[in-house]
Simulated scan of single mutants.
Amino acid sequence: MAYDEELADRLREILSQERGLTEQRMFGGLAFLIGGNMAVAASGQGGLLLRVDPADTEALVDEPLVGRFVMRGRAMDGWLRVDTAAVPNEPELRRWATLGVTYARSLPAKRS
């Protein structure tokens, strides 16, 4: 499945003023990076792939339509899948994108 281009455009609009923002295809989707660190992506499996503080994972996965990202059979703390239905409007999408951007900004920038 290709990533949702409409969702990617919505993310692009919300994140357009972020300094250090770049886009990169990864995980079968389109990721938005801050300082080289992934913040949020329009996932190739649908919805969002989101990077957050691992300490916040448990509280966030209690929300409807949110789960841990599973890689190679392992559920990952600090990585979330957010179903498209959880971001039906700009305020909800902005809320999730802001969580990802905030965490990405807390990490050391990667060298190019």
Rank of each mutant, 00 (worst) to 15 (best):
Asp56Lys: 14
Ala104Gln: 01
Met38His: 07
Leu50Asp: 03
Trp79Ile: 03
Val70Thr: 15
Leu7Ser: 07
Gly36Tyr: 05
Glu5Leu: 13
Arg25Ile: 12
Asp9Thr: 12
Leu15Thr: 00
Ile14Asn: 13
Met76Trp: 15
Arg105Ser: 03
Thr102Met: 11
Arg111Cys: 12
Asp83Ser: 12
Arg74Leu: 06
Glu6Thr: 15
Gly47Arg: 00
Gly44Val: 03
Tyr103Phe: 15
Arg19Lys: 15
Leu7Cys: 03
Ala55Met: 10
Ala59His: 09
Ala39Lys: 06
Thr84Pro: 03
Leu33Phe: 05
Val61Ala: 05
Trp96Ser: 04
Val61Leu: 06
Val82Asp: 10
Arg105Lys: 15
Val52Lys: 08
Ala104Tyr: 02
Val61Ile: 14
Ala86Arg: 15
Ala41Glu: 09
Val87Glu: 06
Gln17Val: 13
Arg68Phe: 06
Ser106Phe: 13
Ala31Phe: 02
Arg111Asp: 14
Pro108Tyr: 06
Ala55Gly: 12
Met76Ala: 07
Gln17Leu: 12
Ala109Pro: 11
Ile34Gly: 04
Asn37Gly: 02
Glu18Gly: 04
Gln45His: 12
Ala59Pro: 11
Gly36Trp: 00
Ala42Cys: 08
Leu15Phe: 07
Gly46Gln: 08
Leu107His: 03
Asp53Lys: 08
Phe69Cys: 09
Gly46Glu: 09
Phe32Ala: 00
Leu30Val: 00
Glu23Phe: 09
Leu30Gly: 01
Gly78Lys: 07
Thr57Asp: 13
Ala59Trp: 13
Val52Met: 09
Phe27Cys: 01
Ala59Val: 15
Met26Val: 00
Leu30Cys: 02
Thr98Gly: 07
Arg51Met: 11
Glu23His: 11
Ile34Lys: 06
Gly35Glu: 10
Ala41Ser: 14
Gly73Trp: 06
Thr22Arg: 05
Arg51Val: 07
Leu48Lys: 01
Phe32Cys: 05
Phe27Ile: 08
Ile14Thr: 08
Glu92Asp: 15
Gly29Phe: 02
Arg12Glu: 12
Leu65Thr: 05
Asp4Arg: 02
Asp77Glu: 14
Pro64Ala: 03
Glu58Tyr: 08
Val66Phe: 05
Met26Leu: 10
Met76Gln: 14
Ser112Asp: 14
Leu11Lys: 01
Ala42His: 09
Val70Leu: 10
Arg25Trp: 12
Ala59Cys: 10
Arg72Gly: 09
Ala86Lys: 02
Glu6Ala: 13
Met38Glu: 06
Leu49Lys: 13
Val66His: 12
Thr98Ala: 12
Ala55Phe: 06
Ser112Leu: 13
Leu60Ser: 10
Met38Lys: 07
Gly44Pro: 13
Gly78Gln: 10
Arg74Val: 11
Pro88Ser: 04
Gly100Leu: 01
Leu50Trp: 06
Gly35Met: 10
Ala86Ile: 01
Arg10Gln: 15
Val87Phe: 09
Leu60Tyr: 10
Ile34His: 10
Pro88Cys: 04
Asp53Trp: 03
Thr57Glu: 12
Ala31Tyr: 04
Met26Gln: 13
Arg10Ala: 14
Val70His: 11
Ala86Thr: 04
Arg12His: 14
Glu18Lys: 02
Gln24Ile: 11
Tyr3Ala: 00
Leu7Ile: 00
Leu60Gly: 10
Tyr3Gln: 00
